[in-house]
Design a protein around this nucleic acid. Structure first.
Lengths: 208, 208
DNA sequence: ATTAATTCTAGAATATTATTCTAATATGAC
DNA sequence: GTCATATTAGAATAATATTCTAGAATTAAT
């Protein structure tokens, strides 16, 4: 579903593996019925697959949800990876991070809605460790940049565990609101507002 | 469960209605097994109730979850209501709002975890309207204060639909991280950081 | 190419869980 | 007390997840 949603797939539909079709089908069923409403039978039928095949690939319902979640998480990180790696200053890093996040959600609303809905279940299930590891990588990368900024004086000293929340908290909150139809403007349309707010929150000299 | 967690209940346990016992039991089962893992049978047994009673009060599983969610939402709003009403300036309002939120989550971790987990399901179920109405009330109150602030020049002009995210986004994000054991410090311990960040985000003169 | 090992698919059988349904019991109004 | 209504009970049923066994496809080795 990664490929299918991000690019026009040049391969014939039949070339998509059974596993991928099941993941794509799970996402579609989630969109239609919600996380608790979607059933194994629906997913299996829409993927033209069998119960046996589904359980062979994913073990159980939770495994299917976790697999979809982790794949989407990789997608999301890859989306802004290039821009983040190209950034040289803390501000550029922050800009790439937030803009990339807002942009990904704007272009993948169903995927994002699924991730918000599934995260807490994944975090307590069998694959909790895999999720924690990916989180640590992301946070580690970010904290390194910020600590350098603190030393150089461009970023003020704050409790390290609050940095991530200050940076992406407003963006995440707005994305959730958008996906729940509580606000109308696409997330990426407010990128400047959220980048600016993040910079004000952590910059030593926000008014210059 | 509301009473039980916020105050020492002076009534005898038997005085608690069957409905309330079911709600309390649902919360406990959620804590132990997660939203998708908790079963009607578990909830019924822990509440010393019957299947018929449960369905009489809540209609179905979704109704039970929604009832618990909406009750906790009222709890949460009431928690900081006094402080918010007492506030006279935009900064005081903002302070009361954020501090109250962080304080409630800190003192009601299980309830908060449940709310984060259940919100998206409630938002698409039968009780979506009830949730939307409560949200509108909260947002409306807030926007009134902010618009007055913009007119008086103390708050800068921003897209109205981004205000709520700028104010509570970081706090909410941090609370989720805390409840998922990704950070250690209690949310309310960082209240100053988040109040300050919110003020920087929306103030016309953050550096004075 | 043939065999053997492995992976994958199928779907009936089973187990688990949610929900319905009917009857009985309490509660409150008059 | 009698009626009406609300509540409780739990067996019966329906919906759903999971297991299990067998067979088909694929791969690797010779």
């Amino acid at each position: 579903m990664t490929e299918a949603t991000t690019t026009a797939n040049t391969d014939a539909p039949a070339s998509r593996s059974s596993r991928d079709k099941l993941l794509a089908s799970a996402l579609a069923c989630f969109d239609e019925h919600g996380l608790t409403g979607m059933t194994i039978e629906q997913i299996r039928r829409q993927a033209n697959s069998s119960i046996g095949s589904l359980y062979h690939h994913f073990g159980n319902r939770e495994g299917l949800i976790a697999a979809l979640f982790l794949q989407l998480l990789d997608d999301q990180l890859a989306w802004s990876r290039t821009a983040i790696d190209a950034a040289t200053t803390p501000y550029e890093t922050l800009h790439a991070l937030i803009h990339g996040y807002l942009d990904w959600v704007t272009h993948h609303p169903v995927e994002a809605r699924f991730m918000y809905a599934a995260r807490s279940e994944v975090a307590r299930g069998e694959n909790a460790a895999a999720l924690k590891e990916k989180n640590r990588q992301r946070i580690g990368l970010l904290l390194a940049v910020l600590k350098a900024g603190i030393k150089s004086g461009s970023i003020r000293s704050l409790p390290p565990e609050t940095f991530a929340s200050l940076l992406v908290g407003p963006s995440e909150n707005y994305c959730r609101a958008w996906l729940a139809d509580r606000v109308q403007g696409k997330p990426v349309a407010h990128a400047d507002v959220f980048v600016d707010a993040a910079w004000r929150a952590i910059s030593a000299t926000p008014c210059e």
